[in-house]
Design a protein around this nucleic acid. Sequence first.
DNA 1: TTCAGCCTGTCG
DNA 2: CGACAGGCTGAA
Length: 272
Amino acid sequence: MPELPEVETIKGDLKKVLIGATLEAVEIKDFNYLNKRGLKVNSLKELINQKILTVERKGKLLILVFSKEALIFHLGMTGAFFFSPHEDYSILKASPILKFTFNRGFLFFYDPRKFSRIWIIPKEQYELWLENQIGPDALEISVRDFITLLKGSRKRIKTLLMDQKKIAGLGNIYTDELLFRAGINPFRQVSSLSENELMELYYHMQTLLREAIALRGSSIRNYIDGFGSKGAFQERHQVYGKKGQPCPKCGNPLLYASINGRGTTFCNYCQR
DNA sequence: TTCAGCCTGTCG
DNA sequence: CGACAGGCTGAA
C-alpha cells in the first residue's frame, strides 16, 4: 500500500511519539503471521526494555531503530500503524497483528491482506542490510546517478521506475502520476528516452513526491498515518484510478492497461 | 515478460 | 459472482 510519501508521513508521526520511548511489552495477536515470515517470538521479545533511538525510512521501508536492533517493516499493500496513548484500537478495520506497549502509549500494527514483512537486524548491520535490499531512495538520488541508472535499460519505463532495486520508493500511484506529469508513455523503452526527458522525469519525481508528503500521502482505501488520519493527496491525483475519465490536459478519455501485472492509467495523447 | 500465488475486502 | 486493489516473488 504505502509508497514513499505515505511511509515518510508515518515516519514523521512515529518520531514525534517514539523517540526515547522504552518498549515494555510486545503482544502477538497473530502467531500464524509471524510463523509464515520466519519471525521468532523470542527475537521480538528481546526488544523489550530497549529504547527507540530514532525512526527512519528508506524507499518504502520503515525502520524503528532500537538500542541494539533495528525493527524493519515493509508494509505491503495494507500494512498500517496506529499509535495511541490508550489501548483502544477500534479505529482499525481489522484486529492488530502486533501490539507494542511503550512507557508512553501503545503502537498497533495491523495488515488485513498480510502482504507485509518484518525483519529484526542487529543495529550495527542494518544500514548495510538496507543497501543490499534496495536501491537508492527516490528523494536521495542525485540527477546524475538517476540518469546513469536508467541509461541503456531495455525495460519499459514504468517497470524500471517501480523496480525497488534500482530506485526505492515509487509504487503504482506515484509512477502513474509521475509519468503523466512528465508526459512520458508508460510503455516507452527506457533507452528511447532523451537526456531532456530523463531530466524532466527526475524533476517531476522530486516535486511530485514532495507535494504528496506535504499533503500527508494518498488515502484510497486503507492508508492512514501514524495516528489514524487520512492523507489528502488523492484529491490531486490526475490519472491514477481515473480510467475512462477525461484527461486533465487534453480531455480525451484516459486509457487503462496492464504493465507487469499492475493496472496502469495514462493518456495516449499527452504521454508520448 | 507474464502469470499465479500470497490474503482480505470492496465494488459493480 | 468476478474483477480489482498503495507489493513482491518465483516459476513457466
